[in-house]
Write a protein that binds this DNA or RNA. Structure first.
Lengths: 173, 173
DNA sequence: TACATTAGTGAGTAATCACTTACAAAAGTA
DNA sequence: TACTTTTGTAAGTGATTACTCACTAATGTA
């Protein structure tokens, strides 16, 4: 991976996350990255290939985020870690997550199976805690997680710290 | 409003909701509506004007949806109606709601103040029911509502009926 | 009827789109 | 060093973009 190649990926991530995939032209990416437009196609074949390269980079990061939740033995910790996840998105990951949510709506790019392992872990957790309908409890959290993530990315939450505390209290975890 | 004008609005709503605003060209809208491309600009000035005309049509429908929630005296009913709202989106309203969610991510088109009256009504409802932190409870529902709506529009919910019953039971309403 | 306004069309426009090509510079390899 | 491969650029390509213009057809309105 050359320096210019990285510049292209960074510029594309920033622009795609800010303006959207369709609305961002390859010439704009090239200008922002400080390279010729042709270089994008040399390295990534086409615009779609550029997007895939960005997504593949992020795929790894997503899986790493899930590891502690999937490996913990304590069911309460699994639930707490899940609920806290959207609150612990770092500055550097922010653009990638925003892009992820944008693409879900911009392209018909639906892959809920990526979240399936997490939902399964939550189901098991609620089962261990003796809940009557653990599948529905897990689905409830997953659905709620979508809302929380959206609110955080769009900066629509009144007080993140307070809200997070409220959640922990609600689930007594 | 002439017939061709309505055809344009319908075609644009369908295409914007399916392919996105940026990805839909005015020539495509004209073809789908069965009119000349120039007519779009005659009636709506530009592409942006066409979008605004669609959104204004829907604005009225949104406000009507809120009326029963905002006017009921019973706090439990207010909460129940709110939670049931995304489940009762009709076939004809579906496209409009999908567009609404798409635009939230595609354009920097953020208007949470549209939902503010609803959140205020929920806060009052939880207050009347004696909850300790009614503001946070209301915000919880609003955040959750975002997740439910997304799941329904993207058809990511295992069993809508079961999930809805689960919600009603959870809030004892 | 005479005239003004509105509705509608078809063929344009310059700009931008994703992408290609021909070629040069740099880097790796023997 | 001699040669191949990779990296990079500048200047294109045809197609498509949002939008305009000159014009006709239809619809008021007096």
């Amino acid at each position: 991976m050359t320096e210019k190649q990285e510049n292209i990926l960074n510029a594309a991530l920033t622009l795609f996350a800010k303006e959207g995939y369709t609305a961002t032209s390859t010439s704009k990416v090239a200008r922002q990255a400080g390279v010729s437009e042709g270089l994008i196609f040399r390295h990534f074949k086409n615009k779609e290939g550029l997007l895939q390269a960005i997504l593949q980079q992020g795929e790894t990061r997503i899986k790493e985020l899930f590891i502690p939740i999937l490996t913990t033995e304590d069911p309460k910790e699994a639930i707490r870690l899940t609920l806290e996840m959207p609150f612990s998105v770092t500055e550097s990951e922010f653009e990638f997550w925003k892009l992820q949510f944008k693409l879900k709506w911009e392209l018909e790019y639906n892959n809920p199976e990526k979240m399936q392992p997490l939902q399964q872990a939550l189901t098991t957790a609620f089962q261990q805690l003796g809940y009557e309908t653990p599948e529905l409890e897990a689905e409830f959290i997953m659905v709620f997680l979508e809302g929380v993530s959206t609110a955080i990315i769009k900066d629509n939450m009144s007080d993140k710290r307070k809200f997070k505390e409220f959640l922990v209290q609600k689930y007594k975890i």
